[in-house]
Design a protein around this nucleic acid. Structure first.
Lengths: 150, 150
DNA sequence: AGAAATTAAATTGTGCGCAATTTAATTTCT
DNA sequence: AGAAATTAAATTGCGCACAATTTAATTTCT
């Protein structure tokens, strides 16, 4: 087995870590789709709602959280988030307004509908678990290993 | 710890397997970007080239491979592939033409530039490995575990 | 205080992904 | 053979991702 052969092997699709990651990520998101359709959310919108449901009860953010805050949690920039947040606002799930303390920031808060949606979203994680071909413990173990690469 | 608390835990961003998958997939693709920029390819275009470099020397496909074949390897449909292949054709890396045997099919072949590009792409897998924070063996192990979920 | 640098969002433009539909060719029935 | 069903790509439309730029507000220097 020569070095040239090693390089040829590395160029094969099935040997590529990143392709498996890319394909599996799309596959699992596809498994979320029917569940999130019920809530009227896309997967990235669902992630934003998770951030808001988790942070906004916290008295640390009485006026809402900034776009920057959401972007840091999800590793997304304003080019992705601004139009996404406008859609969530258009669907009545959130409010957006400029911060009074720092006019550069836009603060995002949940609307009543947005707060209520959390109850309907509670079934999603367990439902999804059923459609994945692995035990919860195995998934947690894999999750922790993958997180180490982030 | 009540069941309601378990559900609240499951709704937290950091506990979600899928978010880690989604974020890591984007992060690793971002690490490919500077390398692929050198080749004038996006990551999905690189994957198509990998399929072609791997399949087209095979005498089983003397006339090229169909869009369907590429789509099955990459788990992508014609809605994604048709415009992507048109861009690769526009950049002179591939040829596309209707099959004579079955006019429904479009056969994709490598151009001379497309064949030559493989030599320049040979450095990519090793270069990428250097930018990932894990040993090759660890990555192979993770890859095999993730592939089990595909 | 006033210029320069930094920061937060928004905007613009390109390229995916994917659902849904359309078009055209081939295969399967009867 | 001819209708019906199936198949392969293409097309249409929407929503991300992300690079690059712009706009406006705040902070840092001197």
């Amino acid at each position: 087995m020569s070095i040239a052969d090693d390089i040829d092997e590395a160029l094969k699709l099935d040997n590529q870590f990143c392709f498996v990651l890319y394909a599996l990520s799309r596959k699992v998101i596809a498994q979320y789709r029917p569940l999130l359709d019920e809530l009227g959310l896309t997967y990235p919108q669902y992630l934003v709602m998770l951030v808001l449901w988790e942070a906004l009860p916290d008295p640390q953010y009485p006026e809402g959280v900034s776009v920057k805050f959401i972007g840091e949690r999800l590793m997304l920039d304003s080019g992705t988030l601004t139009p996404l947040l406008k859609r969530l606002e258009g669907n009545g799930l959130i409010h957006r307004e400029r911060s009074r303390h720092d006019e550069r920031e836009v603060l995002v808060r949940l609307s009543l509908d947005g707060i209520e949606l959390k109850e309907r979203a509670r079934v999603v994680p367990l439902q999804l678990l059923c459609s994945v071909n692995a035990t919860p413990n195995k998934l947690m173990e894999l999750r922790d290993q993958l997180r180490g690469l982030l």
